[in-house]
């Protein structure tokens, strides 16, 4: 579900206004865009570049450099499995494959119905409680395949796509 052009224009104007004159703010502005849509829509990024006076080249070189930014809509529910060292040692690889089986998608993919997105993150700083996963931003500690499954929102539950 892509945002409409007028919608993005308004959103971008607000974000650009907030950050334009602040130093070191391009990444903050892109964060704001992603917070708004769950990803960075191409048109919005271009629009933002124009309003913040940042070359298109710069916007895209930055967007594609940082792992955090997504260029495609991730789907409604984002499931992240931590693959940091602590979690890795505590069985994150198995957890990831369980999650992958449960959702029927590989890491980095979005399910066809646009409901779920599975991704790998590199440490959320909760290593003492490894393995860790997050569902729509909510942290789950000492996760097992079952506890993760129990936390998956059912497909019908709507959510504005934020991670």
């Amino acid at each position: 579900m892509s945002p409409t052009p007028t919608q993005t224009e308004d959103d971008v104007a607000v974000i650009a206004k907030r950050w334009k004159d602040k130093r070191g703010s391009l990444i903050m502005a892109l964060h704001a865009l992603q917070d708004r849509y769950g990803y960075v829509p191409r048109e919005a990024a271009m629009n933002l570049g124009e309003q913040m006076n940042v070359p298109l080249a710069r916007i895209y070189e930055v967007l594609t450099f940082y792992n955090y930014f997504r260029l495609k809509s991730p789907g409604k529910h984002v499931v992240s499995v931590c693959m940091g060292t602590a979690c890795y040692l505590k069985g994150a690889p198995q957890l990831l494959s369980q999650a992958s089986d449960a959702l029927g998608i590989a890491p980095g993919e979005t399910s066809e119905d646009g409901e779920y997105h599975l991704q790998v993150v590199r440490c959320v700083g909760c290593c003492g409680l490894a393995p860790v996963a997050t569902v729509n931003g909510e942290l789950l500690a000492k996760v097992t395949g079952e506890s993760l499954a129990a936390h998956l929102p059912s497909p019908s539950v709507s959510n504005d796509g934020k991670a």
């Binding site: 080249a57 895209y60 594609t64």
Partner: peptide
């Protein structure tokens, strides 16, 4: 510009 990073870094036209 360069797009992406690490081993996938590639030269490309803007955007």
């Amino acid at each position: 510009t360069f797009l992406q990073r690490g081993i996938d870094t590639r030269i490309a036209a803007a955007g």
